[in-house]
Design a protein around this nucleic acid. Structure first.
Lengths: 359, 359
DNA sequence: TTGTATGCGTTATCAA
DNA sequence: TTGATAACGCATACAA
């Protein structure tokens, strides 16, 4: 059973007045020592600091929050885990954001929401009623209702993922998907591949579109055979979908020797299909994934890595820039409005050179 | 660039007095309508309710929190993502907890911490200084310093994962790992397997020990050949470790026809090893994983599923029971102190019957 | 440089 | 049943 300690001795946390009494000053002076040390004479400051340390005083954040109407919390909608996604992307993003928030003394507040409308509503409520400073909007799409709604209601936020258009009326952080895919194509070309296929996400969505365009552009830039443009299939982000698309490419009379995919999940599908088709990944067929998930590492899959730590830092930096009122001097890597971060390619054994032609 | 709306119009949220004025009553009456409706005459109540609705009044949670010294937030330490784990377990747990918290109007507050000591320190600070009601301790181990420290400092918490001993001086929720492994063994026996091996986690750790003991017990109960007890290897929770252990089992003169693993990550290692060894999973070798991660589904791997939704609900229910002071009538599935939840086995094609003996 | 007064929005105590 | 008064812990404007 659970007998939980004595009474919730939460009761006796020392307060400003306690410190003031102990140091023999007024509580305002204590407040100044904390919030504006330069306005206090060094010796008083020291005496107060001593009392603070001795009592283990910590400012009550609830009181601070009520007074300043901001609770140093960043809201994040936790999405239902997509059952097919192999990639613990949210884990990593949450960790990255939390870690970045630590330096700025910000915490993440998680909330569930069933859809965009619910998310908007909760953001407004949390902002107005709970002092949540700002929000991170994940996966903003072209026709996404969230940015407009939040702007209109004065709720600060940073979008992770741009809309289709470049410049927007809100701050965003994104990864250069276009560049990432291009880097994968370049790598495969350097390895000697000429027939490169692409298995992608729905191009009408933001991420899917960027990655698909990156692929087409890279094919052109590398002056690969123009019929490569036919070696492209897009669909859902699931392993079975990846398998199906891979089969469709492999059964062609002129199959690709390499396949770039828009996600590790799709790449796993491609690898499974290859195995069933009797071609060996890393020898007969090169495969590159996207996200550098643990799965990619486990399967020796080359993959495009998103810079998670920087993503968190940039989002947090941008958030802090939005609300300078909060008094927290940004203390961030760099001033930031919109940021496009570069992914890198992690090369493993799945993206070897093409097998010598047996024809 | 980001021009973020007008000014933070956060300013004009209606307050208790606004409602009171609109309804022509005192603010205390409004408060009563919300917190103790039975103490207010129905007609007044109705009038006030109307004003509340008309103004879209929402209680300011910061003020509530300051006054009642509890912010309806549950603290959760976000762990660094383990690079080798294929399983987005935290994603799912966080979602499950958030969802369970929604019904009780609780939110999750995430915080990073580098080690146990840091976690303890942050929990204490957050509890005393930020009104965080209670915490979820993940993966409590036998010699874990956290429970003792939190009990001593009066910080309420629920442990997910028991320590080695059964009854403790704190509340916990756990999954019956022992039962889960046993269910896997039973299933394989029903399928006709007699030589069943086990690839597990470090037995000196809590989870690893429970699962390993579950395996040994099941072997005995099923009266399998006693030399099965030799078909057990334990190590790190990584794919390479799983591969190594699988090779060690496969190269024996009397290899197992089925392998139960203590994680999907290990199972993937076993499957890769089998493939390289030239035996086909689902035909020559049965494999069962643990966690029913997306990876398991993707690879057609039979796996033991932890009941994520119930885990979240039970943890939340237990948390609310700890702090009845908070005024939130539990509103939970059932009163709960310590809870052991049952996993279920998800059967896929990796755990077929043994191939007919060719000897 | 330091202290005093006031208020953030709510809940709790008590009197009417 | 309702309302006045006090307090939660802090910060801000202003006076000393």
């Amino acid at each position: 059973m659970a007998e939980q300690a004595p009474p919730p001795t939460n009761a006796t946390a020392p307060t400003l007045v306690d410190v003031a009494r102990a140091a023999g000053v007024s509580r305002q002076t204590v407040s100044n020592v904390i919030n504006a040390p330069e306005r206090v004479r060094p010796e008083t400051r020291e005496r107060v600091a001593l009392s603070i340390a001795r009592l283990g005083y910590q400012p009550n954040r609830l009181a601070q929050a009520l007074r300043t109407n901001t609770s140093r919390m960043i809201g994040y909608r936790i999405e239902p885990p997509t059952p097919h996604a192999l990639d613990p992307f949210h884990d990593r993003l949450l960790h990255s954001l939390s870690e970045a928030g630590r330096a700025a003394d910000r915490h993440l507040l998680l909330f569930p929401a069933d859809d965009d409308a619910a998310e908007i509503e909760v953001c407004q409520r949390l902002h107005r009623g709970a002092g949540v400073e700002a929000f991170v909007l994940y996966g903003v799409e072209a026709q996404d209702p969230r940015p407009r709604a939040l702007i209109d209601s004065g709720v600060p936020f940073v979008a992770f993922g741009r809309t289709a258009q470049g410049s927007e009326e809100y701050a965003w952080v994104d990864v250069d998907n276009f560049f990432g895919i291009a880097a994968a194509v370049d790598h495969l070309v350097r390895r000697g591949h000429r027939r490169i296929g692409y298995v992608g996400l729905k191009p009408e969505e933001n991420v899917g579109g960027q990655r698909a365009r990156g692929w087409h552009a890279a094919i052109d830039r590398q002056q690969l055979p123009s019929d490569c443009h036919a070696l492209v299939l897009c669909g859902q982000d699931t392993v079975p979908a990846g398998m199906q698309m891979a089969f469709a490419l492999l059964e062609r009379s002129d199959p690709p020797t390499a396949i770039v995919t828009a996600s590790d999940t799709l790449a796993v599908g491609v690898m499974r299909a290859a195995q069933q088709w009797g071609v060996e990944v890393g020898r007969d067929l090169a495969v590159v994934g996207f996200d550098d998930s643990p799965t990619a590492a486990a399967l020796d899959l080359s993959s495009i890595r998103q810079p998670m730590a920087e993503i968190g830092q940039q989002i947090m930096a941008t958030l802090l820039n939005l609300t300078p009122a909060a008094g927290g001097r940004p203390a961030t890597p760099q001033d930031s409005t919109d940021t496009l971060l570069m992914p890198t390619l992690v090369i493993r054994s799945s993206s070897a050179s093409p097998a010598p032609r047996t024809t």
